[in-house]
Design a binder for these strands. Structure first.
Length: 827
RNA sequence: GCCUGGGUGGCGGAACGGGUAGACGCAAGGGACUUAAAAUCCCUCGGGGGUUACCCCCGUGCCGGUUCGAGUCCGGCCCCAGGCACCA
C-alpha cells in the first residue's frame, strides 16, 4: 500500500530532524575546503515575499550541493533590522520600533524555517542588537581616529513643515511625501565616511572581480566615474587669485570664449561686487542656489545665466573671457567653474547663442570643414586642431597631452584626475538606527566615546510622536553627559548611522557572531572569508555592494581582516513577476509564500522557482506552473513506491555494465548522463532550470523502462542505483521529499551526508550515434552508425543513403565531415 | 544621449567553442480508465502545403554579409527592460 505524498507532514518532520541533529551548524575545519554562501539578508518588514524565497532557495541549493561535494559550508542568515519602516509603523500603530522589529523577525524566522533552508541558526544576528552595533560603533571610532570619518557642513533635504531631514527616497517631485510642502536644501553638519580615499582601489579592483556580472561592474565603474583631464588656471582681471577649471577636453582650450560658474561657487558674489550687475547676480544666485541640483527636476530647465561684469583671461590665447554664473554648472563636480567652448560643447553652444557669445571652431572632423557661421549645434567628437596656434594640426588625443604639458610647464595648470564619487554621508536624523559614538564638548569639540563605554545604547524609553524626527534630541537622559576628555558638560550626538553601514560588514561578523573581544575574530574571519558566493537583487548593484567593498578595505587597513574583496562570486537574481509586473500590494498581484507552502509544500514552491527561469532572469509566476512542479514530485514519489517491492532487498548496481541487454544499458546510460548534466548545470552558472529538466527526463525514461525491461535481479539492481542517484540529484532543490524517499529506500542516515554521485565513464560511453546528413546545408537524412566507423565509412554511408541520394546531382563537389557528428554534401 | 541586458511556438524556456531549432514544463486538442467527475496514464501540438505509415517549402525582431552550413560570427537598423544622466 503506497503511502500518500503529504508535503506538510513530511516537511515538518525533516525540519525538526535537521534542527535537532544540528545538521547545518558550521565549524572551522582545516581538512576540508571551506565554502561560504550568503544571500543578502532581509529587512524584517513583516512577511517574507516571493522574491526572498527565490533568493534564499537559490542559495540553499548552492549550500546543499557544495555540502554534498565535500565542502565545509557556512550558510548563515540574519536581519537588517534598523530602518525607517519601523518608525513609521510605530507612529501609525503605536508600537515601539523595537517591538515591531523583533515581532517581525520572529514571524519571518518561522517562515524561513518552513522553507527548510540549511542555515546555521546559531549565527543569526539582528543589526539592531547592541551586541552587533557596539562593534560597528568601534569601527566608527577607529575610522574617526584615522581621519576616515569626519564631519562637515553639507546640504540635506529639509521639510520646513515637518521640521526634519528627509531621505532622497522621501522627496517626490521636490515635495515632502507626507505633507506635500516644498522641500528645501539646508546646510547641516553631517558625518561622512571618506570613501573617496578608496576611489582608485575600488575602481582598480573591479578588474579582479571575474565572477561578477558585467553590468554590476559597469554600474560601479560609472558610479565612481573617473575622468582624466586637466586643471587650468584662468587669471582674473584685477585679482590675484585665478579661477581654476577642470576639463577633460583641454584640446579645445583655444576655443574657450567665456567662463561659467556654478551659482554656489564661493566667488560668484564676490566677483560681481561693485559692478552694475551686482543686484542681478545676487538675485540669480539666490534663486538657483536654492534649487536642489541633486535630483532630476533640472533636466528640462532651460540654460540661464547672468554676466558678473568681470573678465578672466584665456591663458593661451590671451583673450578676455566674460565670467557668467550659469544654472547648469554643478558645484559638486570638478571645481564648480567651467571654461565654455561653444563650438564643441552643446550646453555652451546653446548658452552662447542665447547670450551672444563668440563661437570659435578649434576642432575639425575628418573630411569636413566647420565654421562658426554654419554651426547649428556643437561638434563634440574628436578631430584635428585648427586655430590653435602651435597645436594646430594635431589630433585631439596627442593635443590633450601636449596642452596639459604646456600648461604645467608655464604653471598655468596641470594634468588632473576627477572622480564622480563623493564621500558617503552617514548622518541620519532618525531614531531607529545605531547611535554615532561622539560627544560634543564646548572646550574639546567632537570627542570619541571611549571604547570601554561602548556600546552607546539606543534608549528604548522614548515616545515616538513627532513625524519623522528623531526623539533622541528631546531625550535629555540620553544626550546629557560629560566630556570624556575634560570631564566638563558634554552633549551626545543624536544622529544615528545610515542603515547601509550595518549591511556593509555583517557578512564578516557572520564568521564570529559571538566574538566578544573585538570587531572580528581574526582566526575565524580569515578562515571563512571571502564570501565564495553572494546572491541578491540587482537593486543593490551600486550602493550596498560598493559600501561593502569599501568597508572590507577599511577593515583590512585597520587590521581586522586579511581581505581586499568581500565577495568572490556574485549572482544577481531576477525579480519575481506576476502578470508582467513586480509583485506589489498596490497592484494586487502578490502571491504569499506561506499560502503556497500550505497548499503545495515548501519543496514544490522551491522547485517551481528554480525551474521557471534561470536565476539571473526575471521570473513570471504561474499558478499552473506550480501545479506542474507539484505533479513532478508526485511522479517521483509514485515511481519510488512502485519499484520499492522489487528493489527493497537488492544492492545498488556498482559494476560497469558490459554484460547488459541493450535496453538496460541504455537506461543506465541515461542515469549517468543525467548525473553529468545536472552536475555541469549547477557547476556552470547555476542553471537549475535545465538541471531539473534533466531530472524530469530521467523520471520519464524510468517510467518507460518499468514495462520494457525484463523483471530480473540485474534490472532491479540498476533501478536501485537509478533511484538513489535521482534522489541525491534532487536533494539540493527539494530536500524534504528527497530525505523522505531516501529513508523509505531503507537508509537511516541523512541524505545530506551522502556524497554527490559521480558519472561513471564506462556508462557514459556510446556504442552508436546518429549521423546527421545534410545536402547543401539542408537536413536530408539520419543514419545510426557505430562509433567504431572510420571517417571514410561515415562519408560513404552518407552518400549511399537512399533518402540522401535523390538530392545528389552527379558527383558531389565536396563532402564535409563535422566533428564525426554531421556530414554535409555540397553538390 | 550614454552604459548594460534582452527579442526563439499560444506561454515559461532549451540548443557547451557555428553543425538535427523548439529539450523540459505549462496551456490546448484527442483518447484510455470511471456510472460520472477529479486524479492518473497514452497520443498530437511552430506556420503552410502535398500524392498523408511518408514528404516538401517557410521559420529564431528587420536588412545585408562571411561560410559547405548562421538562433549562434560580422556590419547596419528597429523594438523592449533596467541603470546613469547638464559630470565640463
Amino acid at each position: 500500500m503506497e503511502a500518500r505524498y503529504e508535503p506538510r507532514r513530511l516537511e515538518a518532520k525533516w525540519q525538526q530532524i535537521w534542527e535537532e541533529t544540528r545538521l547545518f551548524d558550521a565549524a572551522e575545519d582545516p581538512d576540508r575546503p571551506k565554502y561560504y554562501v550568503l544571500e543578502m539578508f532581509p529587512y524584517p518588514s513583516g512577511r517574507i515575499h516571493m522574491g526572498h524565497v527565490r533568493n534564499y532557495t537559490i542559495g540553499d541549493v548552492v549550500a546543499r550541493y557544495k555540502w554534498m561535494r565535500g565542502n565545509n559550508v557556512l550558510h548563515p542568515m540574519g536581519w537588517d533590522a534598523f530602518g525607517l519602516p519601523a518608525e513609521n509603523a510605530a507612529q501609525k500603530a503605536g508600537i515601539h520600533p523595537a517591538r515591531w522589529t523583533y515581532d517581525n523577525i520572529d514571524y519571518m524566522r518561522g517562515q524561513l524555517k518552513a522553507l527548510g533552508y540549511s542555515y546555521d541558526w546559531r549565527r543569526e544576528l539582528a543589526t539592531c542588537d547592541p551586541d552587533y552595533y557596539r562593534w560597528e560603533q568601534l569601527v566608527f571610532l577607529e575610522m574617526f581616529r584615522q581621519g576616515l570619518a569626519y564631519k562637515k557642513m553639507s546640504p540635506v533635504n529639509w521639510c520646513p513643515q515637518c521640521r526634519t531631514v528627509l531621505a532622497n527616497e522621501q522627496v517626490e517631485d521636490g515635495a515632502c511625501w507626507r505633507c506635500d510642502s516644498e522641500v528645501v536644501l539646508k546646510e547641516l553638519e553631517q558625518w561622512f565616511f571618506k570613501i573617496t580615499d578608496y576611489a582608485e582601489e575600488l575602481l582598480g579592483d573591479l578588474d579582479r572581480l571575474e565572477h561578477w556580472p558585467e553590468r554590476v561592474i559597469t554600474m560601479q565603474r560609472n558610479w565612481i566615474g573617473k575622468s582624466f583631464g586637466a586643471h587650468i588656471h584662468f587669471p582674473v582681471q584685477g585679482e590675484a587669485e585665478p579661477l581654476t577649471v577642470f576639463t577633460t577636453r583641454q584640446d579645445t582650450l583655444l576655443g574657450a570664449t567665456f567662463m561659467s560658474l556654478a551659482p554656489e561657487h564661493p566667488r560668484a558674489l564676490a566677483l560681481a561686487r561693485g559692478t552694475p550687475q551686482e543686484a542681478e547676480v545676487r538675485r540669480f544666485v539666490e534663486h538657483w542656489g536654492a534649487v536642489n541640483k541633486s535630483r532630476g527636476a533640472l533636466e528640462d530647465v532651460t540654460k540661464e545665466g547672468v554676466f558678473t561684469g568681470r573678465y578672466c583671461v584665456n591663458p593661451v590665447t590671451g583673450w578676455d573671457l566674460p565670467i557668467f554664473i550659469a544654472n547648469f554648472v554643478l558645484m559638486g563636480y570638478g571645481t564648480g567653474a567651467v571654461m565654455a567652448v561653444p563650438a564643441h560643447d552643446q550646453r555652451d553652444f546653446e548658452f552662447a547663442q542665447k547670450y551672444g557669445q563668440r563661437i570659435t571652431v578649434v576642432i575639425q572632423p575628418p573630411g569636413e570643414e566647420l565654421g562658426a557661421d554654419i554651426l547649428t549645434q556643437a561638434y563634440e567628437d574628436e578631430g584635428v586642431l585648427v586655430n590653435s596656434g602651435p597645436f594646430s594640426g594635431q589630433e585631439s588625443a596627442p593635443a590633450r597631452e601636449a596642452i596639459a604639458a604646456y600648461l604645467a610647464e608655464k604653471n598655468l595648470g596641470a594634468p588632473a584626475v576627477q572622480y564622480r564619487l563623493r564621500d558617503w554621508g552617514i548622518s541620519r536624523q532618525r531614531y531607529w538606527g545605531a547611535p554615532i559614538p561622539i560627544i560634543y564638548c564646548e572646550a574639546c569639540g567632537a570627542v570619541p566615546v571611549p571604547e570601554a563605554d561602548l556600546p552607546v545604547v539606543l534608549p528604548l524609553d522614548v515616545e515616538i510622536r513627532q513625524v519623522g524626527a528623531s526623539p533622541l534630541a528631546e531625550l535629555e537622559s540620553f544626550w546629557r553627559t560629560t566630556c570624556p576628555a575634560c570631564g566638563g558638560p558634554g552633549r551626545r550626538e543624536v544622529d544615528t548611522m545610515d542603515t547601509f553601514v550595518e549591511s556593509s560588514w555583517y557578512f564578516l561578523r557572520f564568521a564570529c557572531p559571538d566574538y566578544a573581544q573585538g570587531i572580528l575574530d581574526p582566526a575565524r574571519v580569515n578562515y571563512w572569508s571571502p564570501v565564495d558566493q553572494y546572491i541578491g537583487g540587482i537593486e543593490h548593484a551600486v550602493l550596498h555592494l560598493l559600501y561593502a567593498r569599501f568597508f572590507t578595505k577599511v577593515l583590512r587597513d585597520l587590521g581586522h581582516v586579511n581581505l581586499a574583496e568581500p565577495f568572490a562570486r556574485l549572482l544577481t537574481q531576477g525579480m519575481v513577476l506576476k502578470d508582467g509586473a513586480k509583485m506589489a500590494k498596490s497592484k494586487g498581484n502578490v502571491v504569499d509564500p506561506s499560502d503556497m507552502i500550505q497548499t503545495y509544500g515548501a519543496d514544490t514552491t522551491r522547485l517551481f522557482l528554480l525551474f521557471a527561469a534561470p536565476p539571473e532572469r526575471d521570473l513570471e509566476w504561474s499558478d499552473q506552473g506550480v501545479a506542474g512542479a507539484h505533479r513532478f514530485l508526485h511522479r517521483v514519489w509514485s515511481l519510488t513506491h512502485t519499484i520499492l517491492p522489487d528493489i527493497q532487498n537488492v544492492p545498488a548496481y556498482e559494476g560497469i555494465g558490459t554484460d547488459f541487454s541493450p535496453g538496460l544499458w541504455e537506461f543506465r546510460h541515461k542515469v549517468h548522463q543525467t548525473i553529468k548534466k545536472v552536475t555541469e548545470d549547477i557547476e556552470g552558472d547555476f542553471h537549475f532550470n535545465t538541471a531539473i529538466a534533466a531530472a524530469m527526463e530521467l523520471v520519464n525514461a524510468f517510467y518507460q523502462t518499468l514495462e520494457a525491461l525484463p523483471r530480473e535481479e540485474l534490472t532491479f539492481r540498476v533501478w536501485r542505483e537509478a533511484i538513489e542517484v535521482l534522489v541525491k540529484l534532487l536533494n539540493p532543490m527539494v530536500p524534504h521529499i528527497a530525505e523522505e524517499l531516501w529513508q523509505i529506500l531503507g537508509n537511516d542516515t541523512s541524505l545530506q551526508l551522502q556524497t554527490w554521485p559521480a558519472a561513471q565513464p564506462e556508462a557514459l560511453m556510446e556504442s552508436a550515434f546518429t549521423l546527421v546528413v545534410q545536402v547543401d546545408g539542408k537536413l536530408r537524412g539520419k543514419i545510426v552508425v557505430p562509433v567504431s566507423a572510420t571517417d571514410e565509412e561515415l562519408k560513404t554511408w552518407a552518400l549511399n543513403d537512399p533518402s540522401v541520394q535523390k538530392w545528389l546531382k552527379g558527383e558531389p563537389r565536396r563532402v564535409i565531415l563535422a566533428k564525426r557528428k554531421l556530414v554535409n554534401i555540397v553538390t
